[in-house]
Simulated scan of single mutants.
Amino acid sequence: MKKSLNIAHRGFSGYYPENTMLAFKKAVEAGCHGIETDVQLTKDGVAVICHDETLERTTTGSGYIKDFTYKELMEFDAGIKFHEKFKGEKIPTLEEFLDYVKDKNLYINLELKNTLVLYENIEEKVISKLHEYKLGKSSILSSFNHYSMVKCKSIDSSIKTGLLYGDGLYKPENYLAYVGADALHPHYFVLLHEEILAGIKSKNIEINTYTVNDERTMKKLIELGIHGIITNFPDKLGKLLE
């Protein structure tokens, strides 16, 4: 059986401020096989990495990312709210992230954050950057907005797409074929239903599941042969995979 991939959720976000370059570097140091992160667009169209559409939870800013230029976003601190020792971390651009991972042989999962805010042309911009850094083959785009995943395929059919969902889709293997995606990205509790998992596995569909932080669930998913396990603690998962 093929070993599950250890995918760091927003970088090594268990111990470092999420979606910062520090968190990505620490995830690589911890031996992750891949990184999951989130892409949004600034007011002036720069692709940046941040999970929430708003700034309050993770930075010293407030308001929507879409309402700030990239230069304005750089005024905010993206580390200090996690712990004062991380003061000075900034919101990275997608370009900074891709430049860092381009030679690391990692599985890259970029979640397009386009459910609450429908960023214009985010699909084109992200796909263009992946090709610029020659990462198209080692990356997968995901979103809770499945219309966006269909659009990604229409732009470039070679780009892999994953469908994020948190509820019990009926026969997700059939839905995936209907949408024309490559992988399912369910919340892990959906996968622990044997009937659902059996249907997906019968079609040899790639599964990358989120966000798995307790070791008992990690062990169960490893035993089930899940393709990718997305976790805030790549160190814990790494030990179990050994």
Rank of each mutant, 00 (worst) to 15 (best):
H185K: 02
Y70L: 06
T211M: 12
L176F: 07
K104Y: 02
S13W: 02
G168N: 10
E195M: 01
K160C: 12
C152K: 04
Y210E: 07
A177W: 04
T42S: 14
E84D: 13
A23D: 02
N208F: 06
E173S: 10
I200K: 03
S157M: 09
S139R: 00
G45I: 01
K153P: 01
S143E: 13
I159V: 13
L94I: 15
K71N: 12
T209I: 01
G61M: 09
Q40I: 03
D44F: 09
G180T: 04
E56G: 10
K125I: 11
S4T: 15
E132Q: 15
A23Y: 05
T54Q: 02
K2H: 13
K66F: 01
Y15L: 14
I196S: 07
P172H: 07
E56K: 07
D214V: 07
E18H: 10
I65Q: 11
V48D: 06
L73T: 08
P234M: 04
F24G: 00
G61E: 13
I108Q: 03
I80W: 00
D44P: 01
E173R: 12
I122G: 03
K160T: 05
I226S: 11
E36Y: 10
G79D: 05
D52P: 00
L197D: 07
A181E: 04
V190R: 10
I200G: 00
N109G: 02
V39A: 14
K102V: 07
T58Y: 05
V190W: 03
K85A: 08
P17Y: 02
G14A: 13
G31I: 07
D77M: 09
I230F: 08
N105S: 14
E53T: 08
V46H: 02
D52H: 08
E84G: 02
I222A: 05
F144M: 15
T60N: 08
L169R: 08
Y133V: 13
F12A: 08
G79P: 05
L169Q: 04
E223W: 10
L221C: 12
F144L: 15
M149T: 03
V126T: 15
I229N: 01
G168W: 00
N174K: 14
R57K: 13
T37I: 09
S13N: 08
Q40D: 11
E242G: 05
G88L: 05
V28P: 00
S157N: 09
A47V: 11
R216G: 04
A183R: 13
H187K: 14
L73H: 03
I222S: 00
K26H: 10
E96H: 04
H227Q: 07
E18R: 07
T58W: 01
H33R: 11
E206A: 06
Y178F: 13
D235P: 09
F82I: 12
Y64A: 14
N208W: 09
Y178E: 15
K219G: 09
I205N: 07
V150H: 09
T60G: 09
K137T: 06
Y170K: 13
S157V: 15
V212S: 11
E206T: 14
E194N: 10
Y16N: 13
L237I: 01
L106E: 04
S138W: 03
L135T: 03
I91G: 06
L41Y: 08
T209L: 03
K113V: 05
Y178W: 13
M21H: 02
V150A: 12
L106I: 04
I80P: 06
E29P: 00
N145Q: 14
G162C: 11
T115H: 15
T69I: 04
K2M: 12
I226K: 09
L240P: 06
S138C: 11
N19T: 11
F68W: 10
